[in-house]
Design a protein around this nucleic acid. Structure first.
Lengths: 238, 238
DNA sequence: GCAAAATCTGCGGGTTCCCGCAGGACAAGC
DNA sequence: GCTTGTCCTGCGGGAACCCGCAGATTTTGC
């Protein structure tokens, strides 16, 4: 069995290396990559079928790297290992996991023992392991109590990129009014209305405020923004 | 000599502990705190005059913790130790460092040897040590070639919080038009105009786009946003 | 197959934003 | 004193935004 570790922090990388060695005696080769880009290359070259992947790396983050790895070999088993359980990450991951693939998502703050268990479960037993906390986020974002639908999320991203209503309408093949409809439901879902400043009438620019609230609640994060910006540039240049 | 380490990641914390022990044999006590809030308390209680501080912690980030520590004892020597050199962090730090205080700013990616040197320089020699890269950011943000003035930066923050022009004018005791003037200079400084999408006429909502660009360039980051949001709430409730 | 619910769409208006123009306040330099 | 530069301020208008209303279209549930 070969395991590929993709992690930019040297300390965490060697810690992971150690953990893999301890948890998987049947593992005969541990490879390391220090960012998403070189992770993709190593995965392609070594044909590793087991990957431990950090999210939030410079160069190319874990989500993008995982997507291309899975595109090439959908049966790769990937264990995501992240500092945060931002809704943006959770949503990003579940967006790219292929049908029937096995993966895991554990937090860096987890204990050695649970990391060991996760490694064995995902890589040996082919069983999905999602951290409790991450699971909670998943639930919340699905149950549309306060969670955003996919349509609303996409609008949010486009707005956050700084596009006008008209531009969004064009990109999404919608009428102007439909875009504004989605925006309104976004404002409601994010509770833009009751806010610090009590009888705030005209104190907030709703469009801007929605994005800010999304950032503060980690529904969006800068990593998701960077991805979206790159896609926007691609879609324009083509 | 007593040294207080404030760092939320256990691995990095123990690595720092080791580095301090090795670099400062005259140090007879190493204390640890795992976030900004408990860091403040420990600093107060132990009267430590030497602090190694991570930025970007949950609970209370390094900048806020450093500010209260320095407010209580301005002669405390603080070495900031961060993953990133975001302009938002650099600006935040230089905003709070008191007159004549000695401090340092090194990146986590630096070598063991340079960390050792920084520890000795700041704590023993009372000499400021700023990482080359960080220094570069500082220069750039001061030289107003593309750097924002303080006035523009504050406007940027207020806009990012989602306030309307009118609200900002009121908070800052300015006329509406003045706020808009500063906004315009902000747009120019951030190069909002030439953008992906060539003959983009009316494709971008400038106000939103400015914030997005600032985020992508790390002029702003979510940590700075959170701080600003808290200050906003305080200023309203009072 | 039909009714209910959810979405999309056009119209119209009030408000906010973006910004050119022009005048006033204040400091620095010859 | 005059000029030059920088910043603040008011006015006005075109564009974009926010959103209620109402009809059309699609989806959902039974």
């Amino acid at each position: 069995m070969k395991v590929l570790i993709v992690e930019d922090d040297p300390l965490h990388r060697s810690y992971l290396h150690e953990a893999v060695r301890a948890a998987l005696p049947e593992c005969d080769a541990v490879l390391e990559a220090e960012n998403g880009a070189s992770g993709e290359i190593q995965a392609r070259k070594s044909r590793a079928e087991h990957v431990v992947m950090d999210l939030q790396m410079s160069e190319r983050n874990g989500i993008e790297a995982a997507r291309t790895i899975w595109r090439e070999r959908p049966d790769t088993k990937i264990l995501f290992w992240s500092n945060y359980s931002d809704e943006a990450y959770v949503r990003g991951v579940s967006r790219i996991v292929p049908e029937g693939a096995t993966y895991g998502y554990v937090l860096k703050s987890t204990s050695d023992e649970r990391l060991r268990l996760a490694l064995r479960s995902v890589f040996v037993e082919s069983q999905c392991v999602i951290d409790r906390e991450v699971r909670g986020i998943q639930q919340k974002s699905l149950g549309n109590a306060h969670g955003l639908s996919d349509a609303e999320y996409e609008i949010l991203v486009d707005v956050a990129l700084g596009l006008t209503d008209k531009a969004i309408a064009q990109r999404k093949r919608l009428s102007l009014r439909s875009v504004q409809n989605r925006l309104q439901s976004l404002y409601e879902k994010l509770d833009i209305y009751q806010l610090p400043g009590a009888e705030a009438e005209g104190w907030y620019n709703l469009r801007m405020r929605a994005v800010t609230v999304a950032l503060l609640r980690k529904v969006l994060n800068s990593s998701a923004l960077e991805r979206a910006e790159r896609e926007l540039r691609d879609s324009i240049s083509s």
